[in-house]
Write a protein that binds this DNA or RNA. Structure first.
Length: 593
RNA sequence: GGACCCGUAGUGUAGCGGUUAGCAUAUCUGCCUGUCACGCAGAAGGUCGCGGGUUCGAAUCCCGUCGGGUCCGCCA
C-alpha cells in the first residue's frame, strides 16, 4: 500500500481518517501494555500508539528498534488536550491497526535521536545516518533553495545555462591540477577544471551574450574549514557590460537568493571599498564589516622615533599600524591574552606586536618607557582611560595583515559580533592587477591573466606595473570571500601586452593559451563576469561553521572521503591499461584506530 | 612543508603517577496501559589509537608513529 501522506504532515484536520505511514522508528516508548512509537520521515515526526487490542501490530511493535523502517496503518485522532506537543504533527496521533517492517536496522554507530553529537569523523563515515537529523539536512535544503532562486532569476534576466567540459586542458598556473590519464592517447592527460574561465569567455566569443552555470571546480590544494578540493561555483558572464552592470545584477541576484533561501531582506547597493582601503582600514581584502575596530596608520607619529623597534621598520620603508581596543573591552584582555594575541600576529607574519595601555596622561606597557617623546601625540589615539593600543611595525602588507588577523581574533574572543547581527555584504574593488613575488621579484597576476587592466592605468603596464589597477572585484560577506570576478581583456593586443608583463615569451603564451588567443582575433565582445563560491555562500546562509555542512558527502582535512575510503590504490591492470607505472611510493598504511 | 589541539566501552565524556578505569546514553533481560529524552530493577560491554622509553608502578610523564581537527604556507 502507498503512504497517504508524510508523517510530519499530519494535522488536526486529518483526524478521523485512516492513513498509511512510512518512516523510521525515531523512538520507542514501551509501557508494557502500551507502546508509543515516534515515526520520523523527511517532513517530521508523528506519534503512533499501539494498543494490545491490535494483536498483530502489538507483537510487531514489541520487536521494533531505533531506525527500523516500517509501514504503519491506522486511524488519526486528536491527542488529549494536555498531551499535545508543539512540533508539526504534535496535535494528533495514529492508532496503529497494522505495522509492517520494511527494513530492520542494526544498532546505529551514531545515534539519530537525541542531542548527542558524535565526532565529525564518525558523522562523515556514516553521513547517511547523520543526514537523518533534520538540522543536518536543513543546510542542503537551504542550498537547494538558493540554487533554484539562481536559476529562476538568471533565466528571467536572459541568461543561458551552459555546461562546460570536466575533462579539459591542464594549465600550469594557478592551483595544482587534478589530472586524468587519457587511455586512448597514452602519455597524455586531461585536467579537471579549476574554473570554467576560458570556456565562458569563449561562449561570449560565440555570441551567448549572457551565460551561467552551477559549475563543479577542482583545485588540488590543502584543505581548510572553508575549502574543499572539489567545490561548486555559480559562474556567470555577460557581454557588453561595465563593472557597474555586473555588480548591480549581482546585488539584485543576491537579494533574491538570500530571501528565497533563508528569508533575509538585505539592503542594496552594497558598500564598496577599494582594495587599498580594505587593507588599510581592516587589514584584509575580505573585511568583516559587522564590527568596527578599524586600524590606523601611526607612521607619521613615529617618524624620527628613538624606539629602535619602530625606527628600523620605518627606515626600511615600512609602517606602524595600530588597533585600538576601547577601554570598555580592554579590561577583558589580560597580560596572558595579549601574549596570545601577539602569538597570533606572529603566525600571520609579524615579527612582534607591542601594546600600550592608557594610564593617566601616559601609558603602561613593556615599550612605554621608550615612547615618552610620542606620548602626547599618542593620547589622541587612546583618548579614554585604560584604552589599549596594539601596534605592529612592518611592511604595509605584513603590519596590516597581522593586525587584521588580530582584529578577527578579538572579534571571536570578545564576542564583538552579536548572534543577530545583520549580514554585512561588501564589494572590494580596484584590486592591483599584478603583485610581485617576494623572492623572485617577478610580477604575477593577482586575479588571472585575462583580467582587464584599468584603462586609466594601462599606459603604466610596462613602466610601473605595481601601480596598475585591475577591473576586478570581490564579493565579501561577513569576512568571507564569496565571489570574485572582473572585466576581461577582449582584444589580442592588450592580451599580448599582459602576457609580456607577466614575463611570458610570446611563444610560451601561444603554447599554453593559443586556442584562446586565436579566438581573440575574430571579434570578441567586451565582457565580464563573476564566480561565486556557492558552497561558502550556502555555509553562511545556513549559519554553518564548516563548508562540510553544506556538502552532501564532504572530504576531510586530508582530502579523503571517510565514507567511501577515497582516494585508494587501484589494480595494477587498471594502471597498465592507462600506461602508468608508479614511482616508489610508500606502502599505504592501514589505519590502526 | 610548518605550528598547535585532540584520541578512554557502540556513542558522548570523567579520571592526569598507585582506582576493581567512573558517569550518561545506547545494547540485552525482567516489570510496567497515556508515554513523549517514559520510568523502575538487573546484566553484559574497555588491547585507555599503536610502538618504545622513564618509573617499584603509566590511561596519566617523555619520544616516535597512526588517525582526527584548527591555522600558517599554498589556494590564477
Amino acid at each position: 500500500m502507498r503512504r497517504t501522506r508524510p508523517c510530519g504532515a499530519l494535522r488536526r484536520e486529518h483526524a478521523g481518517t485512516t492513513v498509511v505511514l512510512n518512516g523510521w522508528v525515531h523512538r520507542r516508548r514501551d509501557l508494557g501494555g502500551l507502546i508509543f512509537l515516534d515515526l520520523r520521515d523527511h517532513a517530521g515526526r508523528v506519534q503512533v500508539l499501539v494498543e494490545p487490542g491490535a494483536a498483530d501490530a502489538f507483537d510487531v511493535a514489541d520487536t521494533l528498534r531505533a531506525e527500523w523502517v516500517i509501514e504503519a496503518t491506522g486511524l488519526v485522532r486528536e491527542r488529549p488536550e494536555d498531551q499535545r506537543t508543539d512540533d508539526g504533527a504534535g496535535a494528533v496521533e495514529v492508532v496503529a491497526e497494522r505495522i509492517e517492517v520494511l527494513a530492520a536496522a542494526d544498532t546505529p554507530p551514531i545515534q539519530v535521536a537525541g542531542d548527542e553529537r558524535a565526532s565529525e569523523e564518525l558523522r562523515m563515515r556514516y553521513r547517511y545516518l547523520d543526514l537523518r537529523r533534520p538540522d543536518r539536512m536543513e543546510p542542503l535544503r537551504v542550498r537547494h533553495r538558493a540554487i533554484k532562486a539562481i536559476w529562476d532569476f538568471l533565466d528571467a534576466e536572459g541568461f543561458l545555462q551552459v555546461e562546460t567540459p570536466l575533462l579539459t586542458l591542464a594549465t600550469p598556473e594557478g592551483a595544482r591540477d587534478y589530472l586524468v590519464p587519457a587511455r586512448v592517447r597514452p602519455g597524455t592527460f586531461y585536467a579537471l577544471p579549476q574554473s570554467p574561465q576560458l570556456f565562458k569567455q569563449l561562449l561570449m566569443a560565440g555570441g551567448a551574450d549572457r551565460y551561467f552555470q552551477i559549475a563543479r571546480c577542482f583545485r588540488d590544494e590543502d584543505l581548510r574549514a572553508d575549502r574543499q578540493p572539489d567545490f561548486t561555483q555559480l559562474d556567470l558572464e555577460m557581454s557588453f557590460v561595465e563593472v557597474d552592470d555586473v555588480l548591480e545584477l549581482n546585488e539584485r541576484l543576491l537579494k533574491e537568493v538570500t530571501h528565497a533561501a533563508v528569508g533575509w531582506n538585505i539592503a542594496t547597493p552594497f558598500p564598496r571599498l577599494t582594495h587599498a582601503e580594505a587593507i588599510d582600514r581592516f587589514g584584509s581584502d575580505k573585511p568583516d564589516l559587522r564590527f568596527g575596530y578599524e586600524l590606523s596608520d601611526l607612521s607619521d607619529l613615529f617618524a624620527g622615533t628613538a624606539f629602535r623597534g619602530f625606527a628600523s621598520a620605518l627606515d626600511a620603508g615600512g609602517t606602524v599600524r595600530a588597533l585600538r581596543v576601547p577601554s570598555a573591552r580592554a579590561g577583558d584582555l589580560s597580560r596572558k591574552a595579549l601574549d596570545e594575541l601577539e602569538a597570533h600576529a606572529k603566525v600571520h607574519g609579524a615579527k612582534a606586536m607591542a601594546w600600550l595601555r592608557r594610564d593617566g596622561d601616559g601609558f603602561k606597557g613593556p615599550i612605554a618607557k621608550f615612547l615618552e617623546a610620542e606620548t602626547p601625540a599618542l593620547r589622541d589615539h587612546a583618548p579614554e582611560q585604560s584604552d589599549l593600543l596594539l601596534l605592529i611595525a612592518d611592511r604595509r602588507a605584513v603590519a596590516c595583515g597581522a593586525l587584521g588577523a588580530v582584529r578577527l581574533a578579538l572579534r571571536d574572543r570578545l564576542g564583538l559580533v552579536p548572534d543577530d547581527a545583520p549580514p554585512a555584504f561588501a564589494w572590494v574593488v580596484d584590486f592591483p592587477l599584478l603583485e610581485q613575488d617576494e623572492e623572485t621579484g617577478a610580477w604575477t597576476y593577482m586575479h588571472h591573466p585575462f583580467t582587464r587592466p584599468h584603462a586609466d592605468d594601462l599606459e603604466r603596464l610596462e613602466s610601473d606595473p605595481g601601480s596598475v589597477r585591475a577591473e576586478a572585484y570581490d564579493l565579501v560577506l561577513n569576512g568571507f570571500e564569496i565571489g570574485g570576478g572582473s572585466l576581461r581583456i577582449h582584444d589580442r593586443a592588450t592580451q599580448d601586452r599582459m602576457f609580456r608583463a607577466l614575463g611570458f615569451a610570446d611563444a610560451e603564451a601561444e603554447e599554453r593559451f593559443g586556442f584562446f588567443l586565436e579566438a581573440l582575433r575574430y571579434g570578441v565582445p567586451p565582457h565580464g563576469g563573476i564566480a561565486w563560491g556557492l558552497d561558502r555562500l550556502a555555509m553562511l546562509l545556513a549559519g554553518a561553521p564548516s563548508l562540510r555542512d553544506v556538502i552532501a558527502f564532504p572530504k576531510n582535512v586530508r582530502g579523503g572521503d571517510p565514507l567511501t575510503g577515497a582516494p585508494a590504490p587501484v589494480d595494477a591492470a587498471q594502471l597498465e591499461e592507462l600506461g602508468i607505472r608508479l614511482a616508489d611510493v610508500p606502502e599505504p598504511v592501514e589505519p590502526t584506530s
